[in-house]
């Protein structure tokens, strides 16, 4: 099962790397978010120039979890959004594999059919992780870019990477299940559009939880994008976490794991159903 999943996933990753357009497109998207949105929307400027903010960063930092600037706050959110869009785009490959008869052909091989689903997840996580790490590095180099907490250490870095990996796993489990089940790219995009925008908007990817009205808060807090963004933010803004902060990050990671398990179970059911002889 594992070796077959790796083989199927590896094939897709090789394909992705050989067609660098997709890689470049994902990175351009991340750059636009950081450079253009990060600087235009920048609430730190808005607060500083309004009577409310009193001309200082204090008010912004209070609202934005102590971030030294907006892009530091935004980077985890951008990675989460790019992960979401990468996943939804990458799912198309699976739909195309189905339409071209490739999934049928895989189904005539003596391999467990769920390895086709796991292969899809693996490749997507690999792609999303690659994109996430480059985006993370990129964020240091944009104007008013990412500034890590002075205490940021190796454990914090591991925490950040784990969070990214889990988030991409969550989305990949979900979208690969959908991609394997639908019969055309049209219906896949319809489902993706229906899901992706609410997941994105009801999240703390772009602004803090305090901005949401009361009725939206529970949804925003439970959103996997928020879990990943909050955990990563604590790690990069504070560094060398205190016990309370560490348990908050652990809580977020456990939440992501739960999502992964639920979506994974759902995806296995969908894949089994979609790939069974009928």
């Amino acid at each position: 099962m594992i070796s077959e999943s790796l083989t199927i996933g590896g094939r897709a990753v090789t394909k992705w790397l050989r067609n660098p357009f997709a890689v470049v497109a994902a990175l351009i998207q991340a750059t636009f978010w950081l450079v253009l949105f990060g600087n235009s929307f920048n609430p730190a400027n808005a607060f500083a120039s309004s009577p409310l903010g009193g001309g200082s960063l204090g008010f912004f930092q209070q609202a934005f979890g102590g971030a030294p600037n907006y892009i530091t706050f935004l980077t985890p959110g951008v990675i989460a959004i790019v992960s979401l869009t990468t996943m939804s785009f990458m799912g198309v490959d699976t739909v195309l594999d189905r339409m071209s008869g490739y999934l049928d052909m895989l189904s005539t091989y003596p391999i467990p059919r769920t390895s086709i689903y796991f292969g899809a997840i693996l490749q997507n996580v690999a792609k999303a992780m690659a994109t996430a790490m480059v985006t993370f590095l990129l964020a240091f180099f944009v104007p008013n870019g990412l500034r890590l907490a002075p205490g940021f250490n190796a454990i914090d870095l591991v925490g950040v990477l784990t969070t990214f990996a889990l988030l991409s796993l969550v989305f990949s489990a979900l979208f690969s299940g959908i991609a394997i089940s639908v019969k055309s790219t049209d219906s896949f995009f319809a489902v993706v559009n229906f899901l992706a925008l609410p997941i994105w908007f009801i999240s703390t990817a772009l602004f803090p939880i305090s901005f949401f009205p009361g009725w939206m808060k529970p949804f925003a807090q439970a959103n996997p994008i928020s879990l990943a963004s909050e955990a990563t933010r604590l790690l990069i803004v504070k560094g060398s976490l205190t016990g309370v902060q560490a348990s908050s990050v652990t809580g977020d990671i456990v939440g992501l794991l739960l999502y992964g398990v639920v979506f994974g179970a759902l995806g296995i059911l969908m894949a089994r159903n979609a790939l069974k002889a009928r």
């Binding site: 094939r11 090789t14 394909k15 071209s100 008869g101 049928d104 005539t108």
Partner: peptide, 12 residues
């Protein structure tokens, strides 16, 4: 099995 359509990987 050789299906009617080409299911090779064109990037490989």
């Amino acid at each position: 099995v050789v299906p009617q359509e080409i299911t090779l990987d064109s990037e490989l």
